[in-house]
């Protein structure tokens, strides 16, 4: 298969150009990602994502993205949206999957299908305050990929490994981050 035919819909040239430009002007690489959240009722909240800061200026999208979060009925909630922890899983799976596509394009591997399932284990004795030895968060996360591509199993393993190495959400989930919460 010739290289020109590989198209995963990722503009690798643009990404490589951006990398080159930002190497020369590292201050433009400073981004701020944002979301706004409003309490509705009970455990239901509504969040929006619109602007961000990057390349030295405010960036606006043409669309405002909306996210409802709630808890399921087994927690006596109304189940009006995914739980916040499920948003974390969505974030990790979509970040790794975008990475698979980008790395595949860069390595000239044509993808036909990529699907992932992701599962996070949690002992809710932590969040319910039953056992202080149990942490609130996941005790582990498992991601399983099914990938159909013009590549050897080893090359596909390497795609998935490299995607983890370059993933922002993977880094956020696997390493500690300082969090400051204030009330204005």
């Amino acid at each position: 298969m010739s290289e020109a035919q590989v198209d995963n819909g990722v503009n690798v040239e643009a990404l490589l150009d951006a990398r080159k430009a930002l190497t020369a002007a590292p201050e433009a690489a400073q981004f701020k990602w944002r979301a706004a959240c409003e309490w509705k009722n009970g455990t239901h909240s509504h969040s929006t994502v619109e602007s961000f800061f990057g390349l030295g200026e405010e960036q606006h999208r043409s669309t405002k993205f909306n996210f409802d979060a709630d808890h399921p009925e087994v927690f006596a909630s109304e189940d009006l949206g995914a739980t916040p922890v499920e948003y974390v899983l969505v974030g990790l799976a979509s970040c790794l999957t975008a990475g698979v596509a980008a790395v595949a394009q860069h390595r000239k591997i044509q993808l036909r299908s990529v699907t992932a399932t992701i599962e996070g284990g949690m002992d809710i004795q932590g969040i319910l305050g039953i056992d202080s030895d149990v942490r609130n968060g996941f005790d582990g996360i498992k991601v399983s990929y099914k990938i159909d591509a013009d590549a050897s199993p080893q090359d596909i393993d390497a795609l998935v490994a490299q995607s983890q190495k370059r993933s922002a959400v993977y880094d956020i989930v696997t390493n500690p981050t300082n969090v400051t919460v204030e009330v204005n």
Partner: peptide, 8 residues
Amino acid sequence: QFSGSLRN
């Protein structure tokens, strides 16, 4: 604190 990235 150790990273959860050991497997990868």
